[in-house]
């Protein structure tokens, strides 16, 4: 079948099998930042924003995402300027192997969009669909708090 998608702000027209998952389609089309982990909706490494809601792209049939807005982690940064959350993850040492990082950052982004100053408990709950097998999560929670501060400061400056 053929379908149209708006990926990171650009309209894309693709041919794909009717039973293809959004994860596989995005990766086939070069969006390597969407990682393939468990394919069961458990690990969160394949997360994308679908109509601005975070979803596991492995649990979305591509056909059901036609004519919808999709954003990957790469869409968060503006030009050469990394998103404050991306910087925060690097500064906090929250990236080890990096496999979970795109999903983690998108989950954190969704949280901070609705709640700019979350508690640690709220951060844990928002990241409940994202596994990290390297860091033990402490540095990730630290990165989200650091990113929240950066985003608040950026907002004040603007």
């Amino acid at each position: 079948m053929r379908g149209s998608f708006v990926v990171n702000g650009s309209v894309r027209e693709w041919e794909f099998p009717e039973d293809m998952r959004l994860l596989d389609l995005l990766r086939r089309e070069g969006y390597g930042e969407v990682k393939c982990g468990c394919r069961e909706g458990m690990c969160g490494s394949c997360c994308v924003l679908l109509e601005e809601k975070i979803v596991n792209s492995c649990q979305v049939l591509a056909a059901s995402a036609t004519n919808k807005q999709i954003r990957t982690v790469e869409a968060l940064s503006e030009g050469e300027e990394p998103h404050p959350l991306v910087t925060a993850f690097a500064e906090a040492g929250a990236v080890q192997c990096g496999f979970c990082t795109p999903g983690m950052i998108l989950a954190a982004y969704c949280l901070l969009r609705d709640n700019p100053d979350p508690s640690e408990e709220e951060i844990k709950r928002a990241l409940d669909g994202n596994y990290c097998r390297c860091t033990g999560y402490v540095k990730i929670f630290d990165a989200v708090q650091r990113g929240a501060r950066k985003m608040r400061e950026k907002e004040v400056q603007e």
Binding site: M42, G44, I54, N56, C110
Partner: peptide, 9 residues
């Protein structure tokens, strides 16, 4: 129930 990304689906 489940986790945030799944609750959105």
């Amino acid at each position: 129930a489940a986790a945030t990304p799944l609750r959105n689906r």
